[in-house]
Simulated scan of single mutants.
Amino acid sequence: MAFRGPKVWLWRWRRNPLKRRADVVEGWVVLGVGLLTVLAGVLAGLMVARSVTQGLARERADWRPTVAHVVAAVPDAHAGRRHISHDARGWAEVRWTVADGSVHTGRVRVAAGDRVGTGVTVWTDSHGHLVGSPVPPGQAAFRADLVGTLAGLGAALVPFAAGFLLRARLERRRMTAWDTEWARLGPQWGRMV
């Protein structure tokens, strides 16, 4: 096993008569790829997290709870079952009126057994269309952080992979040059011993 000395920081940029041009190029590639990877990951992550935060805040500001009334009876979800859950829900058609006076209908999940005319709370957007309930601020922050982190990792992967491929190509080129030199000098070396 070969003995290796202590790790020397910034060895690629130190003077050395045995250092080849390929070593210098690889040093700059490693530095550039490292900086690009960190920069792309951080910027993409921050931008995506900010966008998600703003989008979810806009939803919380625009979406409103509205009282809708059941128009068709909900089928009994317990028919033929032995064990009945107290929070069983089924799909029902409901109707609601928006601020401009127009009437909308849609299907939502309501408690099983709700009768026609029962009021249920639904969430609507500014046009009166059904939407889900908005994400609470705590969950919105978590979601924005998670999506931003994943986007940052994905964006950082691009320069990292490109740098990996470039270094592999430089290594192949260096090994080819080494083989060429060895083919030229190898026979002379044997005569000296």
Rank of each mutant, 00 (worst) to 15 (best):
M1H: 14
V52A: 08
T149G: 13
G55H: 11
L150C: 02
V131D: 01
V110C: 12
G5Y: 08
A177D: 15
S102A: 06
D100K: 04
L31K: 03
G152F: 03
V71C: 05
P65Y: 11
S102T: 15
R64C: 01
V103P: 02
F3Q: 13
R169D: 02
I84W: 01
G128M: 04
A155I: 09
W13S: 09
V8L: 12
R174L: 07
V98W: 10
R95G: 04
L56Y: 01
R89N: 05
K19D: 00
M175R: 14
P6F: 03
P187A: 02
A162S: 08
D23N: 15
G119S: 05
A72H: 06
E26S: 12
V52D: 05
L153G: 13
W63C: 08
W11C: 13
H104D: 02
V122M: 04
A99P: 07
A92T: 01
A40C: 15
V131H: 00
V108W: 09
A73E: 06
L39D: 03
L31E: 01
F160R: 11
W182Y: 13
T180V: 13
L170P: 00
A79G: 06
L166A: 09
D100C: 07
V38F: 14
A155E: 06
V52K: 07
D23M: 12
A162C: 13
V70T: 08
A68M: 10
G163T: 11
A99T: 10
G132W: 08
R20Q: 06
S133L: 00
M192D: 08
G113V: 01
R81N: 02
A161E: 10
S85H: 10
T97W: 04
F160I: 03
P136L: 13
W91N: 09
G113S: 06
H127M: 07
P6M: 11
M1L: 14
F160C: 14
V42W: 09
W178S: 07
V158D: 06
M175L: 15
A161F: 12
G32P: 06
G45Q: 04
E181R: 14
W9S: 13
L166C: 03
R95T: 11
